[in-house]
Design a protein around this nucleic acid. Sequence first.
DNA 1: ACCATATAGTGCGACATCGAACAATAATGG
DNA 2: CCATTATTGTTCGATGTCGCACTATATGGT
Lengths: 167, 167
Amino acid sequence: MPEDASKSQGQNQGQNQGSTAPAGVGLFFELFNEIGIIEQLSRTMAQSVLPDGLMMTHFSVLNHLTRVADGRTPLEIARAFQVPKTSMTHTLKGLEAHGFVEMRPNPGDARSKQVWLTDAGRAFRAKAIADISAAFAPIAPMLDADKAEEALPILREIRQVLDTARD
Amino acid sequence: MPEDASKSQGQNQGQNQGSTAPAGVGLFFELFNEIGIIEQLSRTMAQSVLPDGLMMTHFSVLNHLTRVADGRTPLEIARAFQVPKTSMTHTLKGLEAHGFVEMRPNPGDARSKQVWLTDAGRAFRAKAIADISAAFAPIAPMLDADKAEEALPILREIRQVLDTARD
DNA sequence: ACCATATAGTGCGACATCGAACAATAATGG
DNA sequence: CCATTATTGTTCGATGTCGCACTATATGGT
């Protein structure tokens, strides 16, 4: 859980005292704090416009299947989102219950399955994009697109490092 | 839930089609995706070295109380972390059960309380910082501190915009 | 003083998350 | 071929998150 660093951007002392911590740990503490708060706020904001019973996770999976490709396996999807496979099982069960995806056996591997979008799933995704965009519309003008563009590759790099370090 | 944008950094089409979405919505979709994954990975990594029954939230609150000041009210802490106050009630209950904080009545407002650190709480925080730092030590050299320093103020600004838009 | 409204914190219920253990199937190696 | 090990997906249980409703107290207007 992230804390509001703006309230405590003091001298930042005492974080490395008496340890062999590498330089920069405090910096990444702060960075992860900010990231955590933004994640929290953006997720809450987006979810508030999704219909009842639908999470951000559901939308994100539909979006992924649309943008990448149909027919992914549950494990592939779980890896794409960096969540445990049990969490993805749960999410997919919800999507299936809503009729937004269809689970088919995976030809070529009887252990596995494939996740296919339905027409209802595609329709829901389109509507969700519109709704979420509308929710962010009032604040989008306040956000500096150039800066966001600048931060994006940095974040990508950080993610990749964390990802590979996950073993 | 964030998806792995590295697997789908294509032409990003179809996000604004047929809507009045402002320019840049797609950009922020991507940004929030990356942020979500980083939050997920860093939280999981940090929690894995915390003792059983202790969450990242617990550590973060202790850290906040140490860095800002003792005697904050639960609501102040909830606001600092941008979480609902019910979540903070739960977290504080856990901290109190572990003997890491002490809840006292708030002189001057009988509705309110104050949260005070105990010696055990301070000791736990110190150990947690050492443990988390150690967990991140192997990957810290792979992270570019200059870039992180560059991204931090941008993220702060984004957070502030989201925060004020929350009403 | 009184009443309406706002605010602090909590109880509760619904539900998401995720680790552990498991069953089914695949892959590997002898 | 068989045995061992790895992998996919699920079930189950424990627990965190958070919206709703509620109580207690404060505050502001008349």
